[in-house]
Design a protein around this nucleic acid. Structure first.
Lengths: 332, 332
DNA sequence: CTGAAAGCGCTAACAT
DNA sequence: ATGTTAGCGCTTTCAG
């Protein structure tokens, strides 16, 4: 079918190894040899069979990135950033959707496809303490998130708690006294609980009751969840002068629901989110949020993973990427 | 390093082939044999080396999907849909970002990585007539878009022109008389020109001048492009009572810019887009748009490609996926 | 600097 | 129903 290296070799009248050397930019090949081989390659339209090389070298040049779903804008933007960073280091990214449930997140660790990738960038959102053992894998992996589940693996942590704190202090400074929360669930791990912790801490420090937070929302952090959560809060008759959504998508859905209900943002309720996804700057009103440093997270994760794959890694490390408060119209 | 099938075989005291049979669910294996092999697999923690199988079978089980960038919401949602559809048929998707320029779009056709995927779903947006020859590839491919460049390949076309027509007729029915266009560029192929054709056709039929369309915007169909385009139109002093953006992202950016300029939507200007991305339903005002049938496009493309890969394909076919007008607040 | 030969881990005829 | 034997196309010692 396709032209093989062997055919190129015989067409050029050289050995297989020589063709391999030329193709792989091996230094010590005479110019004439190289020219002859290149000519044969062109004439035959040879294309390297990457699978064969992969088997031979034991490497595939692919990194896996496990995320819940690409429809969630944060993960689409993250994937984009990871792909660019990987590309710069000569790697390709295989995106593995987990659907954001524990089963899917565990499955990606055990998938036979792991043998097709050199390593995994893993952003679990639904794993529970009980699943921690599954993280003891025998391939290079870097975890996105705090070192909550397993410690002997590289981590890239974003400033979740600090972000929650910033947001809350900002709202308090604007005069808010009763904050409602969207998207909090009981998981003990993951970004959500840390963000909530930041919120509670700031409230406590301000002398407010950190446990008196009206809250709604589910596991799937989508616009629809945000919209439904606000509908629920209003239906329950909750009162609040600020709304912290644990991500921007929910915040955008929430703002829409508030508008539908005739509640003015930021006049009556100030709204803030997390992630600084692109939409947030274009929403009406534009959304105050926390920029988690997506680009740096992506760059760092890829670098750590590639270092480990290529044997340059030391002990497992944890990197903290600083977050930044982005104040926009939704908080006045 | 990793456990091989051979080790499993000797551990279980059977031949290589038997292990292979068990692993591949081959029917004719005695229950006892199967149990013995499974036990060995568990004890050794065996995991199939997919790369080796790929080399041997000449298949990888991966489909490539070439799109400009995942940050553009339409492509993130499309990728999501393609991945789901592929998964249902037992395939994995490798996303190949093209950056949306001609070089990147050509590159993906020639990349050695094509030997790692069984076929390609290709959504060119920047290719010119001159590049048509590059589409003569020797691997299974399905093109997303009209049969404008090459005809002997499977196509899944969306109703671009019809969509433009629907949108325009809707706007005319609402009383609009002067439509501005965002995102039109001179490319002769691609979705843009077809959408524009639909707009012009409807205008002509209504007795309006189809060539008198204020227009702005560039190749990259992002929110920022939409915002900048409106800024430019306003700066030029153009007058218009409707705005058709060639995709939703630009429409959302445009609406934001109109709001910044104090122009009421839909009161003074009605706005419409294309794609029905998720954001459009949550925007304020929510955006009137054309739903191109993304799910069906994805399903159809994957099915066509897999049929071809697995040898069930006939002659090249063109599938038309119907579009649907989604009327929302932005057109009153 | 180039060639010969072995082998990566699996599948697939072909036997048995 | 299970075992044997060749490869798949490339990389990689090891010679020369």
């Amino acid at each position: 079918m396709a032209v093989t290296m062997r055919q190129v070799a015989s067409h050029a009248g050289v050995s297989l190894k020589t063709v391999s050397n030329v193709v792989n930019q091996y230094e010590h090949v005479s110019a004439s040899m190289r020219a002859r081989v290149m000519a044969a390659i062109d004439e035959l339209g040879y294309q390297m069979n990457v699978t064969a090389r992969n088997l031979s070298t034991g490497r595939t040049g692919m990194l896996a990135l496990a995320v819940p779903e690409l429809r969630l804008p944060y993960f689409a933007e993250l994937a984009d950033a990871v792909m660019s960073a990987a590309d710069r280091l000569g790697y390709t990214v295989l995106i593995e959707p987990t659907t954001g449930d524990p089963a899917g997140e565990l499955e990606v660790l055990r998938s036979p496809r792991r043998s097709m990738t050199d390593g995994l960038i893993y952003s679990p959102t639904a794993l529970r303490e009980a699943d921690a053992a599954a993280l003891a894998v025998d391939f290079p992996m870097v975890l996105l998130g705090e070192r909550s589940l397993r410690s002997d693996v590289d981590h890239v942590a974003m400033a979740n708690e600090a972000g929650g704190t910033m947001l809350t202090e900002h709202l308090l400074a604007r005069g808010c006294r009763r904050i409602a929360l969207i998207g909090a669930h009981d998981s003990e791990v993951g970004a959500g609980s840390l963000r909530v912790r930041g919120v509670r801490g700031a409230l406590a420090r301000a002398g407010l009751d950190p446990d008196d937070l009206p809250s709604a929302g589910s596991q799937r952090w989508s616009r629809e969840t945000g919209r439904a959560a606000v509908a629920e809060l209003l239906a329950r008759g909750e009162r609040f002068d600020a709304l912290v959504a644990l991500n921007d998508a929910m915040a955008l859905g929430a703002m829409r629901a508030l508008w539908d209900a005739g509640v003015d943002v930021p006049g009556e309720v100030r709204v803030a989110g997390f992630d600084d996804i692109e939409d947030s700057g274009y929403a009406r009103p534009s959304l105050t949020t926390v920029n988690p440093g997506r680009e740096e997270i992506a760059r760092t994760a890829v670098r750590l993973l590639v270092d480990r794959i290529e044997g340059r890694a030391e002990a497992a490390s944890e990197h903290q990427v600083p977050a930044e408060l982005v104040v926009r119209e939704s908080t006045g």
